[in-house]
Design a protein around this nucleic acid. Sequence first.
DNA 1: AGGGCTTCTTAAGCGCTTCATAAGCGGATC
DNA 2: GATCCGCTTATGAAGCGCTTAAGAAGCCCT
Lengths: 221, 221
Amino acid sequence: MHIILVEDDPQLGAAIQRALERLAYTVSWLRDGREALLALRDETADLVLLDLGLPGKDGLDVLIEARRAHVKTPVIVMTARDGLEARVHGLDAGADDYLIKPFHLDELGARIRSLTRRAHGLAANRIEVGALSIDLGTSEVAFRGERIELTRREFSLLQILMERAGRLVRRESLENSLYGIDNMVGSSALEVLVHTLRRKLSFDTIQTVRGFGYMIPREPK
Amino acid sequence: MHIILVEDDPQLGAAIQRALERLAYTVSWLRDGREALLALRDETADLVLLDLGLPGKDGLDVLIEARRAHVKTPVIVMTARDGLEARVHGLDAGADDYLIKPFHLDELGARIRSLTRRAHGLAANRIEVGALSIDLGTSEVAFRGERIELTRREFSLLQILMERAGRLVRRESLENSLYGIDNMVGSSALEVLVHTLRRKLSFDTIQTVRGFGYMIPREPK
DNA sequence: AGGGCTTCTTAAGCGCTTCATAAGCGGATC
DNA sequence: GATCCGCTTATGAAGCGCTTAAGAAGCCCT
């Protein structure tokens, strides 16, 4: 999941980026409206978090122009508390959702999930890669058609790897997501976790990329 | 079951809240249209009771905006204007039902039940899973043919689990439904509740999924 | 309003599961 | 062939859920 974050406030931007990366999203942080418009045009992102009130170009204009260019990427607008008008305009301009600053980062996560769920076809709260299938709603996991019981940590790890299936996930990124940024886990906790997970699935679903991290290939051979 | 009540009249609001809580619903009472819109967008509620004629923002506008943002939560509109116009507008704007003030609280209960039933795609007022059978209208519970007396909380819990029978229901989700979103219940309240319910039924009808939540299996073996 | 009853929440102890740690091992890389 | 990195396993610690008891809150009846 690739998210474009458009925000000119350094502190807030950094905080959001960190929070999103924790949730295993890939984040491109842009500070300028012009850049944002160019990036949006490419349609490489799965979601855009757009601050209104930007230098270079107003956020609302960016949105309007992007929609005029038939960019269909979901957009969540972030706006300061005061303007009720801004909200209405945002929705009119083609935003899919908006958040009033200040907001809880948890809430942001919830909105993103709800939006991507909606975008990926209704109730598809389910990720499938090869013989693997996990349900984010009920936390149920199936491998080769059989139900598998996972612990919470194992599930979290699998979820992250599957959300980024086909791409390498850095070891550091995994550790941050699983154990938090500050908390440096002393030893080979991650390796142990990978091991137990492999044992419950199979030993070739999760590939090791030596020196970098792990990945689940999208087209399993 | 979490219900958002939007009503600015203190007396009526309090009365409705009380009545709903008696029926074992969790109620968040908001008095302002702006608040209501924000809460609605979260989509955490199972149902919204919306008064038209609000300060801050008209109830109808709230509804229209929410629907425009693809909020699918069922909404019951309450209106004092007994004109046909208001009703039509309400339904056009995306309300699922409406009530003309003044109304009997009994009727409100009936509407809520019917609506939640519809939302879950259930034909009857009765849910049956294995040897369990509950009646949403009369709140009667039968297990292996015998009537069982449950308290309100126990009934709520059982209802949620049965509505989603066969699927794991996350602990967090249960706590939200039973105790409200903001209100974090301190300790093992949920566990105690599960325990008393199990004692009244049997100890194998509700399965624990460690680290995630609980579930009632659809095909009991 | 008050007393008695039910229901609900909190808290604490216990057993079992899950997890992080450390230490030894094997294979890859230079 | 030395070194580094990840795999594997055992072990003690932490976490989670079950259970029970008791105080708080809510409800009902005079």
